[in-house]
């Protein structure tokens, strides 16, 4: 950052703040629009947030002007987070989601209105079919 004088730095930082505020307005507006599926909304929101975050990281946190080791460390952290989410979803998305279908309420525990024997809880994967389970009623208890 030594290359820039104080005034130049102020100009850059103010410009960055301006674009950050603009992006904030954009993301609030984008949330208003109903895309066909909520997933698209989330992706748009994440994209805008990532743009804002990279602006802050590059300019406010001087990543752009300093030794690359700092940026490498930061990106490695984000990569590990992506690995954690990615491989966990590999399991969670391809497996029956737990439903409190046949659980007796915890001793004196809190069930938050989630009735234990909810009909239509996901039944086991039908024989021979590994992926998405069929929605059968659980066998009569």
């Amino acid at each position: 950052m030594a290359a820039h004088s104080y005034a130049e730095e102020k100009k850059i930082n103010t410009a960055v703040l301006g674009s950050l505020l603009a992006l904030t307005a954009l993301t609030v507006a984008a949330a208003g629009i109903h895309f066909e599926s909520p997933a698209v909304n989330t992706i748009v929101a994440l994209a805008i947030a990532s743009m804002k975050a990279s602006l802050v990281a590059l300019f406010f946190m001087h990543l752009r002007y300093e030794k690359p080791i700092n940026a490498i460390i930061f990106l490695t952290g984000i990569a590990m987070l992506a690995v954690f989410l990615g491989l966990t979803l590999l399991d969670v998305d391809y497996r029956a989601t737990p439903r409190p279908a046949n659980l007796k309420p915890p001793p004196g525990g809190f069930t938050a209105g989630v009735e234990p024997a909810k009909p239509g809880g996901t039944a086991p994967p039908a024989a021979g079919e590994a992926a998405q389970p069929a929605e059968q009623a659980p066998p009569a208890r």
Partner: peptide
């Protein structure tokens, strides 16, 4: 607080805890 992320009675997923723990 029984926040419900790992407790199957509250919609949580015990296998998710295993993912968090073994990561």
């Amino acid at each position: 607080f029984s926040v419900g992320i790992f407790d199957p009675r509250l919609g949580g997923d015990p296998v998710l805890f295993q993912h968090f723990f073994w990561f």
